[in-house]
C-alpha cells in the first residue's frame, strides 16, 4: 500500500482510453431488501461496516436526538433495533440517561505495555482512533481486513495516515511474536461467554493462541445486548487472556 492507502497496482486511466467493462449486476438479497425497507437501515449497515457497531450507533443516536429528541431515538430503536442489537442497546442507554460516550484507554495501554506489535481484530473506529493516539508510536498497529459486511478498506485505513496498517487474513501470523498482542472488541459478556465479531473466530486457532503474548478483549458495551446479536458471535471468555472493561 502507498502512503495514501491506495494499492500499488492501481493504474491511471488515461483520457480517451477504453474503460474496463462494468461487472455484471448483482441481485439484491432478501436481507438487503429487508434492511432497505427499514428507512435508515441501509445507511446504518454502511456506517456500522466502516465505523463499527458502537461508533455508528452513537453517531445515529446523537444525530437523531439532535433533530428529533427522545421520540426520534425511541423510533430509531423500534425501527432498527430488532435488526441491529448494538444500536438497540446504545439507544436504550441513551433513553435511560447516558448522553455521552467516553472511551477510556488507561487499562488497555497498561495491558499492552511492552508490546511492539498490536493486531486489532474487528473494527470500532472510536476505540481504534483512541488507541492510535495513546499507544507508543514505536508500537505498530495492524488491522485485520475481514468483516462480514462490505467495507471500503482503503477509505477506512486512509484515516490513520500510516499509523494503522491493513493486514489480510492470510498474512496476519506475520505479526506474531513474544512481544505481540491481539486486541478484539467485546460486545457484552454473559456468564462465561462473550460476544465478538466473527473475524475473531477466523483468526483464533489453537496454533495462533500460542503465537501471541496476549489476546485481549476490549469491552465496548457496558452489558450484553438484550436482542439476539445477529451480527456477532459468542465465544468462551477463556479464549481471551484478559478482558478490559472500563465502560461503566
Amino acid at each position: 500500500m502507498s502512503s495514501s492507502g491506495r494499492p500499488a497496482s492501481v493504474r491511471i486511466r488515461l483520457l480517451g482510453a477504453p474503460s474496463a467493462p462494468a461487472p455484471p449486476a448483482s441481485e439484491v438479497t432478501i436481507e438487503e431488501r429487508a434492511i432497505g425497507r427499514l428507512g435508515l437501515g441501509a445507511a446504518f449497515e454502511l456506517a456500522s461496516a466502516e465505523l463499527g457497531f458502537v461508533t455508528a450507533s452513537w453517531l445515529f443516536v446523537d444525530e437523531i436526538a439532535r433533530l428529533s429528541g427522545e421520540d426520534g431515538v425511541a423510533s430509531l430503536r423500534d425501527e432498527l433495533g430488532p435488526m441491529f442489537s448494538v444500536l438497540d442497546f446504545v439507544a436504550t442507554e441513551w433513553l435511560q440517561g447516558k448522553r455521552e460516550r467516553s472511551i477510556r484507554t488507561d487499562a488497555i495501554v497498561q495491558a499492552l505495555t511492552g508490546t511492539r506489535r498490536v493486531l486489532v481484530v474487528g473494527l470500532e473506529a472510536g476505540h481504534l482512533d483512541a488507541l492510535g493516539r495513546v499507544l507508543d508510536p514505536a508500537t505498530r498497529i495492524g488491522l485485520v481486513a475481514y468483516r462480514l459486511q462490505k467495507v471500503d478498506w482503503k477509505r477506512v485505513i486512509d484515516n490513520y495516515r500510516g499509523r494503522v496498517e491493513l493486514v489480510d487474513l492470510a498474512s496476519f501470523q506475520g505479526w506474531a511474536g513474544a512481544r505481540s498482542a491481539i486486541v478484539t472488541f467485546v460486545y457484552g459478556m454473559r456468564e462465561t461467554r462473550v460476544n465478538v465479531l466473527s473475524a475473531f473466530l477466523r483468526v483464533m486457532g489453537s496454533d495462533v493462541r500460542t503465537q501471541f503474548r496476549d489476546i485481549i478483549g476490549w469491552s465496548v458495551l457496558s452489558g450484553p445486548p438484550e436482542i439476539y446479536p445477529r451480527y456477532l458471535v459468542e465465544t468462551l471468555a477463556t479464549e481471551l487472556t484478559d478482558i478490559i472493561d472500563e465502560t461503566r
Partner: peptide, 26 residues
C-alpha cells in the same frame, strides 16, 4: 469516458430504495 467506472462503483455500493428494490445505474 467515465460511464463504466460510474456503473461499476454504483453496483458495488448496492443501492437499495425505500421499497427494498435494487436501484441501478446502467
Amino acid at each position: 469516458t467515465a460511464g463504466p467506472l460510474a456503473q461499476s462503483l454504483t453496483e458495488r455500493t448496492d443501492l437499495v430504495g425505500d421499497d427494498g428494490a435494487r436501484v441501478r445505474f446502467g
